[in-house]
Design a protein around this nucleic acid. Sequence first.
DNA 1: CTTATTAAGTCAAATGGCTTGACTTAAATG
DNA 2: CATTTAAGTCAAGCCATTTGACTTAATAAG
Lengths: 401, 401
Amino acid sequence: MNELRTIRAKSGTNQEGTSAHNRRVLIEAIRLNGPLSRADLARATRLTKQTVSNLIESLEADGLVASEDVVRGARGQPSTPYRLVPEGAFALGVQIDRHLTRVVAVDLLGREVARAMANLPPGGPAEGSKLILRLIETVRQDLAGRIPESAHRLAGLGVAMPGPFGLEPSDDDTWMMAQWQDFPLVETLAAGTGLATSLQNDASACATAERMNGSADGLDHVVCIYFGYGIGAGLILGGELYTGSNRNAGEIGMVLFSRGGVQSPLEHRASLASLFQHLGLDSATTEAYAEVERLTLADDPRVLEWLAGAAADMRHAVHMVETIFDPETVILSGSAPEPLAKRLFAEMFPLIPSNADRQNRALPRLQLGMIGPWAVALGAAAEPIRRAFDPLFSAILKEAF
Amino acid sequence: MNELRTIRAKSGTNQEGTSAHNRRVLIEAIRLNGPLSRADLARATRLTKQTVSNLIESLEADGLVASEDVVRGARGQPSTPYRLVPEGAFALGVQIDRHLTRVVAVDLLGREVARAMANLPPGGPAEGSKLILRLIETVRQDLAGRIPESAHRLAGLGVAMPGPFGLEPSDDDTWMMAQWQDFPLVETLAAGTGLATSLQNDASACATAERMNGSADGLDHVVCIYFGYGIGAGLILGGELYTGSNRNAGEIGMVLFSRGGVQSPLEHRASLASLFQHLGLDSATTEAYAEVERLTLADDPRVLEWLAGAAADMRHAVHMVETIFDPETVILSGSAPEPLAKRLFAEMFPLIPSNADRQNRALPRLQLGMIGPWAVALGAAAEPIRRAFDPLFSAILKEAF
DNA sequence: CTTATTAAGTCAAATGGCTTGACTTAAATG
DNA sequence: CATTTAAGTCAAGCCATTTGACTTAATAAG
């Protein structure tokens, strides 16, 4: 029956799914807690000692974990802690920004192992993707030169670029990114590298970076506000990155805010782009970036003026995401010059009272995250690692055909 | 080692988890698609025919599914479709509102089987919870009278009330709900009924109802705007209800909106409470509710005035949640008088252009959902069903001690 | 110094849910 | 009436986890 009708259903699972999940749970537990013995792991995951032993043995054979020195000092047989082996897996990440691109390689711990960067050439994505493929090759060879076995351990390629995705270009798009939206980027890079390739927006990548190595380590409910050329939010909800039905979740830059009776998207008032415009700088050249840093450190009055306004809007943005997401904490991160980011962060206090004001908070309402130009590329690279080694619902399911 | 240190880790799983997941996947597939044969189920879930046969056999033995008439008409052996048995499971739901409480029993399909309602007595939650327990008993006996075996098939008790939860009461709280917040409601009702009891806010319950029997059937990314005495949003993200780190996610009523240079929470301008105030009605009595319905049908100018303003704010709210969540659709639901809700819905068009404007949309950007006074209670009752029978990540994990 | 206690980790058999491939059943097609 | 197609069963096998007894090795107690 129903030969042509598509039946909506989730996928089932089997013992492979069980085992895959348990392996991921062990890896995540070690990542979050540091070296753990098999007995520790068994208690923490509610698996039996024997199961943990079996899994650790296979993880060790795969080069993902290694034993450390035996720990004595308590009653009973001394325990053997296991740690993650950073060289157990690698992944590549690409950030595509308005005028430049960055490529990094990271290890299993999400730490940078190699990097490359270049300005995007004229000629749009057709030319740009060729350059990116060359950069990827450079990074790959750099990586292989230092760690020969890494070639067999590449988990994939993560790509991050500004969103939103899949929309008709608006006249508002001053960034010349529209042409990249139509280009079959994932397919081109996957074909050119032979790696499993995924795409996300820069704010999501930033959140992934924060979760891997930053302020969101081990947290399950985090909003990471990405402050860069534009502004967006990376969402970690229920322990997983949330990207919405079309990868456009978290685009808070396009939410309409009011200030002084004027309504406009947040991005027009709180973003590097808005600051460049306020200062009359040519947008998003590396010189403009350096100039902003200089002016900030010099307490330039135009910067201060902008800061006061942007901080006011950012306070509202924090209030909004706290109210809507009820996160454990909000992180201000991004790729702004660090002095500017710190200044903006400081100006945002006191925060607007919100639902997040509760006694017994474990974490501050707002924290400063990894700020710096490489945050997005690092997050992009961390994505394949996360997808391959974090416990995810999708990971237990049987694969699509 | 680490005797006292708590180790953060997710729980592992085993074959029981596998089986539990697969059973849930089958149940959900039949709920979403209608009766399906074993062969259909095997294809849709990627399980083997044999596994599906085994699971269907056990589901049939548990009284959750039943075979229908054999279907002929195609080549090959005729297939035997299986449907859900509504009497396979029941659950109870309680809505606690400002001045009244509703209790319903629903079946496996989330359909109402019994109901009761009463005004909350003076004396706060101590007295109120006694009344609620009596109402629950009434509904339970009503249910047992009609379907004797239902007593053994109660999946649990879901409770819904206005949020936010766990905050210090503000002077803004005109609803006398604060005392309910401090009261150990879940514990009291669980002890009084012997049922597994859970608590959520009314907007979440409304979203659950929409997913079970309304406009969100089978969708994985939905924002359900609950318009009632207050206003909130129920969030279905990635196929699961999202409630945040403290069950306060989706409280869009507390987001600050600007209109005419004045900034105030959305709830103060778009909610039944705001309309009652605008009309000078005593808040939230049943008479006020009927009066609003009458005035709406009479095109009372004060109602029209309120509608114009509320619709403007609601348009912004829709724009905001679309931008932030990137849902498949937004649903306007709630417990307002139906004529008012329909009027408000109509006034919200045209919507503000947003990221959600894309060609090839499968669904409208905004839909009207189940509107009516029983929506929240039905959603509250559907929650235990959902938790027991929907495929959830948490369902595969080993239980906590 | 000896024994008791505690705890980590292994061994080997058992359990149980899914898989496999051959088989049966039963209808439509030509 | 033989062929084709498809649903569904049967029985053996696979494999990850479980179980309980056992080994190892440390500290604590007397």
